[in-house]
Computed example of a mutant assay.
Amino acid sequence: MQYRRLGNSGLKVSEISLGSWLTVGAASDSGLPERIIDRAYGLGINLFDTANVYHLGEAERIVGRALAKYERSSYVLATKVCVPMGDGPNDRGLSRKHIREQCDLSLKRLGVDYIDLYQCHRYDPDTPLDETLRALDDLVKAGKVLYTGVSMWKPAQIVDAVRTGSELNLNRIVSSQPQYHMLLREPEQELIPLCEREGVGQIVFSPLAQGALTGKYEPGRQLPPSSRAVDPKQNGAISRWISEDNLKRVQRLKPIADQTGLSLAQLALAWILRLPSVASCIVGASRPEQIEHNARASGIKLDAATLNAIDSALDLED
């Protein structure tokens, strides 16, 4: 496993990290998430990403219990705040009240004294930005949080956060968590260049387009009956990536993957890691073998000819 600095911070995270959005907390086998986390840790993965809202706190509890056996300094624990956690008017957003209360609850569920990376899960237009940044800075000064970041923020919002934080002499955000993969290249236009200039690192989620880039979905064929794509509770995030056009693009990537000796998933992950400003790719796993397979993408360097072939396969060649 290779490691990269997270933005301009001194924190080093594994190129492949383990998330808990759709898998942890939803498994019918209660011991499966722990086995997956154990395997990830054994492979050298040190970044484990979750959020308070994932299964309304259950994902945090499971991740915390699974990591409790390991030395606290050996892993990086990331969680998030903003998305509604209840029906009350203050049970959501990025107000000082909600941030402070949810941080304490996350610490309790995770069973730790501090959170390595505390991320604003979405932007909150109803709370003044300086209030949010001051609240995060207070958590850092209190030792409850070591680093702060954002998830799914627009470039202009990140600029405002960086500039406002500098003006107020607050601890700077160190990370951005966008959705980015071969079928979604919008972040390349503004977000990634902006963050590179400002020293904000990228922790990419859904790097395999919810499984579309693994090759398990094929154009003109029925969806695998055991896949998330046929589960009405989980297929909302997948459906946009398994259009016939996208699946044809994925098929055109197969010969490239074969030529490089990689699986489609490994090729897709290595492609994202071609960018130095990407610190880590968050992958999910429904069994230990999946995380082991994806972890092998760490350290792979794709040459210029392969990158050009990928662009041609995706119909994105300049």
Rank of each mutant, 00 (worst) to 15 (best):
N308L: 12
S20L: 11
P276E: 15
V145G: 04
L267M: 09
Y41M: 11
V81A: 09
G299M: 07
T260F: 03
R92V: 06
E71M: 05
T79P: 12
I115P: 02
P225W: 10
S151D: 06
N8H: 08
L67H: 13
L107V: 12
A270I: 01
Q234L: 10
R287E: 07
V204R: 00
L6E: 08
G236D: 10
A212G: 05
E131R: 10
H98V: 11
S30A: 12
L110M: 07
N308W: 07
D130A: 15
H121K: 02
Y123D: 14
G299D: 02
S17Y: 06
A40E: 04
D87T: 08
D29M: 14
P225M: 08
L129T: 08
E34W: 03
G42E: 15
A212P: 08
K144P: 05
A270E: 10
L47C: 12
Q234F: 05
C120Q: 14
C82P: 00
L22T: 15
L183W: 05
E198H: 03
C281P: 09
D258T: 01
P219V: 02
S277E: 10
L253M: 03
L11G: 12
G86L: 05
D318I: 08
L267W: 01
Y123L: 01
L275P: 05
N90S: 12
W153P: 14
Y147I: 09
Y118F: 15
E196N: 07
V13Y: 10
V230E: 03
N308Q: 11
H181W: 02
L191P: 06
G7M: 05
E289A: 05
G299P: 11
M152G: 02
Y217C: 13
E71R: 12
E292K: 05
E218C: 10
L6H: 08
G220E: 12
N246W: 00
P232T: 13
I282G: 02
I173C: 06
N246M: 06
L117F: 10
G199C: 12
Y147W: 13
S74W: 01
R172T: 11
G64V: 07
V112G: 07
V76R: 04
A313W: 00
G111W: 13
K80A: 01
L316F: 04
R252E: 09
A304Y: 08
Q157C: 12
R5V: 05
N235H: 04
T164Q: 10
H55Y: 08
L129H: 09
Y3S: 00
D245M: 00
G57P: 02
E186L: 12
V76E: 06
Q102E: 14
W241Q: 06
L223G: 05
P33Q: 15
E196H: 04
R65Q: 15
H293F: 00
A156E: 15
